[in-house]
């Protein structure tokens, strides 16, 4: 690089006393974080396609095969018998949110390894706000994926009540927040990208299968009381039920409470984990601290 001519006052410097950040600045920051996440998502077309293909495989193949095997009796919120495809659609929405939440955790580990995370963490905005922004960005991307799936499912003939597509939005948002917060918390515990496979085996698969996403809880209770109890301890169970009821314009209050509570719990854990006095320092210490 040749030393370029400095074209006059290029930067200026910040005065010793500056205006505190107002709401406008916070919104600019939030918008920037969400936009970056969306741009990254758009640049990674494979990620979008795989996020769409995964639930569609379950819907087109798994559900078609199991339709005759698994009968779904009339259970709330359904007022009549429903096709198995209809039953598992909320679970598949939850699956997209679950995978997307873990994907955002993966991207945080990647960002940390690549150094991009530092740019976020040295922002002058409060750490909690940056993490919430990052979480909202992940939820926005998740919800886009869920609606893309619902459009394809609708074309396939798996339809919810028309207004259900609107009613379900808050449920998707809250469930997405919970799963992104969980992903964020897990990302603070993962030292290396390679360790992410453990998340697949110990979080995603058990979380998904030990829930009413694929089969009603009463059937699980009949098959294994222990598994039923495990399902009741699984936050993902409540996310799926919250989404299921929301499709029919109903609120499942227990699920709402559990999902909201877990969101706060996981987010609080992530904020503590990313506190400079804990998360990064502890990892650095573990790595031997190459100064």
């Amino acid at each position: 690089m040749s030393a370029p001519a400095m074209p006059g006052k290029v930067a200026g410097i910040m005065p010793l006393r500056s205006e505190p950040f107002g709401l406008r600045h916070y919104l600019i920051c939030l918008k920037g974080v969400v936009l970056r996440e969306c741009l990254r998502f758009l640049h990674q077309r494979e990620r979008f396609i795989s996020s769409l293909v995964r639930p569609l495989v379950w819907l087109f193949i798994f559900a078609a095969g199991f339709r005759q095997v698994l009968g779904v009796s009339i259970i709330p919120p359904y007022k009549t018998y429903v096709l198995y495809e209809v039953y598992i659609t909320p679970g598949l929405c939850g699956m997209i949110l679950l995978f997307s939440g873990m994907q955002s955790s993966l991207s945080m580990v990647y960002d940390r390894e690549m150094g991009n995370m530092r740019i976020l963490l040295v922002s002058p905005f409060p750490r909690w706000f940056l993490l919430v922004s990052k979480m909202l960005a992940g939820v926005a991307v998740s919800i886009v994926q869920v609606y893309a799936f619902l459009i394809v499912a609708w074309l396939w003939g798996v339809k919810a009540p028309p207004l259900g597509y609107l009613y379900v939005l808050p449920a998707l948002f809250l469930s997405g927040m919970m799963l992104c917060a969980l992903g964020m918390l897990l990302s603070s515990l993962i030292k290396q990208l390679e360790n992410f496979a453990g998340i697949m085996n110990f979080v995603i698969f058990p979380g998904y299968f030990a829930s009413p996403a694929l089969y009603p809880l009463w059937r699980i209770q009949e098959a294994s009381p222990l598994l039923y109890k495990i399902c009741l301890c699984n936050p993902f169970t409540y996310a799926v039920e919250l989404i299921r009821f929301a499709f029919y314009g109903q609120i499942e209050w227990l699920s709402l409470g559990v999902v909201a509570g877990c969101t706060l719990l996981f987010l609080g854990g992530a904020i503590i984990a990313y506190d400079p006095s804990r998360g990064l320092v502890i990892r650095k210490q573990d790595m031997g601290g190459n100064a």
Partner: peptide, 26 residues
């Protein structure tokens, strides 16, 4: 930073714009 911290998937402008937003500049 010593390590490269640009987001390789984004353009130069998008990288800079992201940083600007992290400082409340839009």
């Amino acid at each position: 930073f010593q390590a490269r911290t640009l987001d390789l998937d984004l353009s130069v402008y998008q990288n800079l714009s992201y940083h600007a937003s992290l400082h409340g500049i839009g």
